[in-house]
Design a protein around this nucleic acid. Structure first.
Length: 954
RNA sequence: GCCCGAGUGGCGGAAUGGCAGACGCGACGGACUCAAAAUCCGUUAUUCGAAAGGAUGUGUGGGUUCAAGUCCCACCUCGGGCACCA
């Protein structure tokens, strides 16, 4: 480009010296960015603590605007990344002009697997890598002109940050969930209950009669952060275990797509299940997109049912069912192959078959079990159990379609009413007994004659029907038609006869919280000589991550399901062993060598923005209350707006809600939820192109001709999807800055479509936004001389009205985050203004100043520059947003469409307040309407004054 | 299989049940220019018509209504979530 002599290039001979070009934009932008930094323009005052400035806080409403913070990967940003950041920036800037004290900041989620995986592939220490990545992202984002308070930026890898991550871990570790009060309480209060005898010990002995070790173990079993030796998701490819949320439906790792195996390991868990109900119920009080709420509800998976105990030779077998009302139809039991009673139930005859089946099931990964979903397999244990309502003996099977991890790991099979049980019963010739009479419609559909004899049925009947054959001496459901009535009666009977009770089961599992990696927060935990865990005293925080030359985990074969992981920290002898005085004199302890998962820092980072430099506490309560406290009774509190992608629906967004609730219960925060309003921005997608061999070719070099695409004269095929290095379709913000400038880039991203919709990137379209800014610029500055073309001349009435209509529309669209229509309205007005300027030769100040103000949230640099050129010497950032004059919103005349039988035949121009008769009279006067009415009879006249006239004829 | 969300010009997208296609891109025509680029002005859903004007038109088929892109029912396609969860 630079070698052409074209006058269209800035700096060339004929190019207007003061045209708003990329070069001029770059100059304007860097000048204002420096000034904002120097002036601290976006610093938000706190009511208390180190960043306090009470005078500036007084008399202003607050607004906490938040983005999902990025993890600083080495690839840098592409144009898709800043979409949400620009959106929040526009919203934040708009609200600053509306008088709010706006807090907007951005930090970095710099611990975790992605950073560490990247470090391993490059061989550079994650800290070095992370810091240079952060520096690069900061540079790219600064160039965008985001109005962040730079004092409040944090990195989760900073010692001063993760000190408090560890502190919060200790709060959770130091708490237990009191189900009676429905909240977490301090562990000391639990000990008090044990000491006083108010709470009995597990085996009934007096608390004082227990050894110190026994007491320690009992208390540990109550903690919200606890050690568990249970089946975990082991991913040898990553060298670590993973949370359920990090494993895909295919049984592979979310990151890297490595196989994941179930195996037992001793690991830290977070008792998130204690909060299942509150996590579901409080969704009602959040302003979140319904799909996200749905995903969280599904993930927690609350289902109401009953536990029913069946007698057996090995004792009571407890099953969970959502349909206790079908108990009369339970004709066999199925246990998970891992169920603890299987051994005791297996008879000598069945032993070999059972053992073989168990071994086969154990060898399968979860996903393989699910792959065989069509075929039902299982083995008879040789024993039978007693159905508590019928007293009949039912055979006990094991089958791998029953999962140990859900409910009780045992089910009662009702083949007449459950398709899986039906298939199993047919496969193993087990009895099928109907407890509900199917409808005639169902029989018709199955093409069989109505009969309660299930032998003729081709499948289970899962609908509602009248209860039959459901009675014993003390209970009858026969004749009932309501499932809920039948459930209630059955539950009452079960409870009064001691055979079971209503219960609620959740799909949600406790959160597996340790990782066998290096790049994470060390646990503030040490072990004594007996292997019991102790909290590191608060004054010893942070527990620093030791600098390791070799930070790589021991390399393992991704398919190796049996080798034990060796966390990198275990290799640092001088770090793992520590002498501490935990109350009984200096002793030697062994440090926990696992680290916390990626999600730990993101569970609370938003609060540290509020009080980033506080060294006494993670956040001053007064500061928390100001920015995040409930706005009214029943309000959850939390950030006022949280914008991010949908991908964190059940990971970050669930974990952080859980931590926040624990902190709330313990009295550390006044808000019940971290994020009151959530908004999911869409993704910027891109086209990728492949040649005949299927190789991607550089998208920027592809030429379109009449719908066909060629690259180097070779036909290529187009596909639509993500932007990615391997797809050779990355467009970077830096390219946009060079070609158009940051303001044009920001404007384009906001104009492409609604913020919550995904849309394809088209560099070709960006020019339209640049043209708009150029036209706007010309309405203020003469391109050739640089002189102001603005005068104090009176504005034409029509344009003034148009301006105020625009102000009103822009205002409501800004509030609703509809920035695309904000931009359309501004362009529309500016186009009208341009026509006037072209004929009048100058721009009325009263018309252009409000436009500059309205533009400033979207294009802050250009707006500052124009505002300054218009003669103002303060930043436009805090200038009040224009207010529409209601008098100017009322039009002298309006145009109303006239329809005949719903078809528009003409328009009338009429005063806004005109009555129905006036509308009708004007409508009838239109020639075209008269023609349409000719020879017809008027049946009805519909007149909505100011809206429409519809004449209905026959 | 179950549960969400979405289908509007050549493209991105606008439309409190009341003039479908705002705004932008592209395309076409014009001005400026020796010429081109850039910029500016105009046209641009399809179709019949010289024009005035008419007909058709928001995935498909029905329905409600004076009036439907918008509300209801069924279906099709695409995107997403969950999935042997008892």
């Amino acid at each position: 480009m630079s070698d052409t002599a074209s006058p269209s290039v800035p700096g060339s001979a004929n190019f207007p010296p003061f045209r708003y070009s990329a070069r001029l934009a770059a100059d304007i932008e860097s000048r204002w960015q420096d000034k904002w930094d120097a002036d601290g323009t976006y610093e938000a005052p706190n009511p208390a603590g180190p960043l306090a400035d009470p005078a500036k806080v007084a008399g202003r409403e607050k607004l906490f605007v938040l983005d999902m913070f990025p993890y600083p990967s080495g690839a840098g940003l592409h144009v898709g990344h800043p979409l949400g950041y620009i959106g929040t920036d526009v919203y934040a800037r708009f609200n600053r002009m509306k008088g709010f004290n706006v807090l907007h900041a951005l930090g970095y989620d710099s611990f975790g697997l992605p950073a560490e995986q990247h470090a391993i592939t490059t061989g550079i220490h994650p800290r070095v890598n992370t810091e240079s990545n952060i520096a690069n992202m900061r540079r790219q984002l600064r160039r965008l002109g985001l109005g962040h308070d730079p004092r409040r930026s944090i990195s989760t890898t900073d010692e001063n940050f993760y000190k408090w991550t560890q502190w919060i871990f200790l709060q959770i570790h130091g708490a237990w969930y009191d189900t009676a009060q429905g909240k977490a309480r301090r562990i000391e209060e639990l000990v008090t209950e044990f000491e006083s005898g108010a709470r009995p010990t597990p085996d009934g002995r007096a608390w004082s009669a227990l050894t110190a070790g026994e007491r320690h173990d009992i208390v540990d079993s109550y903690r919200l952060a606890y050690l568990s030796d249970a089946p975990v998701n082991w991913c040898p490819g990553l060298g670590t275990i993973l949370a359920n949320e990090e494993v895909t439906a295919e049984g592979r790792s979310d990151i890297g797509n490595y196989p994941v195996f179930k195996r037992n390991m001793k690991q830290w868990m977070m008792r998130i299940t204690a909060y299942s109900d509150r996590l579901i119920d409080d969704l009602e009080r959040l302003d979140w997109p319904e799909p996200i709420k749905m995903m969280q509800r599904n993930w927690i998976g609350r289902s109401e049912g009953a536990r029913v105990t069946f007698g057996s030779p090995a004792g009571g077998i407890e099953v969970f069912t959502t349909r206790p009302d079908t108990l009369f139809g339970a004709t066999f039991l199925v246990l998970s192959p891992e169920h603890p009673l299987v051994d005791a139930l297996t008879t000598a005859d069945a032993r070999a078959a059972v053992a073989a089946y168990q071994a086969e099931a154990a060898a399968k990964a979860d996903n393989e079990r699910q792959d065989d979903s069509k075929k039902k397999t299982g083995v008879f244990t040789g024993s039978t159990a007693t159905n508590p309502v019928t007293g009949g003996e039912v055979p006990i099977y094991i089958a791998d379609y029953v999962l140990m991890g859900y409910g009780t790991g045992a089910i009662m099979a009702v083949p007449s009413g459950d398709q899986r049980d039906f298939e199993f019963a047919r496969a193993y010739n087990l009895p099928i007994k109907a407890t509900a009479m199917p409808t005639n419609a169902w029989f018709d559909q199955q093409k069989i004659a109505p009969s309660s004899d299930c032998s003729t049925w081709p499948c289970a009947f899962t609908g509602d029907g009248e209860y039959i054959d459901s009675a014993n001496d003390s209970l009858s459901l026969n004749g009932l038609t309501s499932i809920s009535d039948a459930k209630t009666r059955m539950n009452e009977w079960l409870e009064s006869h001691g055979h079971g009770q209503p219960t609620i089961t959740y799909r949600l599992r406790d959160w597996l919280f340790s990782r066998q990696r290096y790049w994470g927060e060390p646990f503030p935990i040490v072990y004594d000589a007996d292997g019991r865990a102790h909290a590191v005293p608060q004054q010893s925080l942070p527990v620093l991550l030791p600098e390791l030359a070799d930070f790589k985990p021991t390399a393992l074969d991704p398919e190796d399901a049996v080798s034990d992981p060796i966390p990198p920290l275990a290799r640092v002898k001088e770090w793992t062993t520590v002498t501490l005085d935990l109350g009984n004199g200096p002793q030697e302890y062994r440090r926990e060598v696992n680290v916390m998962p990626q999600w730990a820092g993101s569970c609370w980072y938003e609060m540290r923005y509020l009080d980033p430099t506080n060294t006494d506490t993670f956040i001053d309560p007064e500061v928390e209350k100001y920015w995040m406290g409930p706005r009214s009774a029943g309000h959850t509190g939390g950030a006022d707006l949280y914008v991010g992608g949908v991908e964190h629906a059940v990971l970050h967004l669930l974990y952080s809600r859980f931590w926040h609730k624990v902190l709330f219960d313990l009295g550390h925060v006044s808000s019940e939820e971290p994020f009151h309003r959530l908004y999911n921005q869409g993704y910027i997608q891109a086209y990728a192109f492949r040649d005949a061999r299927g190789q991607t070719v550089p998208a920027a070099e592809v030429v379109e001709n009449d719908g066909a695409f060629t690259w180097n004269n070779e036909t290529v095929s187009r596909e639509y999807g993500k932007m990615g290095k391997s797809l050779k379709n990355i467009v970077t913000p830096d390219e946009m800055y060079d070609e158009f400038g940051a303001d044009t880039f920001r404007l384009y991203e906001m104009a492409m479509g609604p913020l919550d919709a995904s849309r394809p990137w088209n560099t070709r379209d960006v020019i339209g936004m640049q043209r708009f800014l150029q036209r706007l610029w010309r309405n203020v500055v003469n391109e050739d001389t640089g002189e102001l073309v603005v005068t104090n001349d009176a504005a034409p009435e029509a344009l003034l009205r148009h301006l105020h209509r625009t102000i009103a529309g822009v205002e409501s669209d800004m509030v609703g985050l509809r920035f695309n229509t904000v931009i359309a309205k501004l362009i529309e007005f500016n186009n009208a203004l341009t026509q006037h300027v072209n004929s009048a030769g100058s721009t009325p100040r009263s018309l252009i100043e409000p436009v500059v103000q309205m533009l400033s949230p979207l294009c802050p640099h250009l707006a500052e520059e124009l505002w300054a050129r218009l003669g103002h010497n303060t930043t436009v950032t805090y200038v009040p947003f224009p207010v529409a004059d209601p008098a100017l919103l009322v039009e002298d005349t309006i145009e109303v469409p006239v329809q005949v039988n719903g078809k528009v035949r003409g328009r009338i121009t009429i005063a806004p307040g005109a009555d129905e008769a006036a509308h009708l009279e004007a409508a009838m006067a239109i020639d075209n309407v008269a023609v349409a009415l000719e020879g017809k009879t008027i049946v009805k006249n519909v007149v909505i004054p100011g809206r429409t006239v519809n004449i209905v004829v026959k």
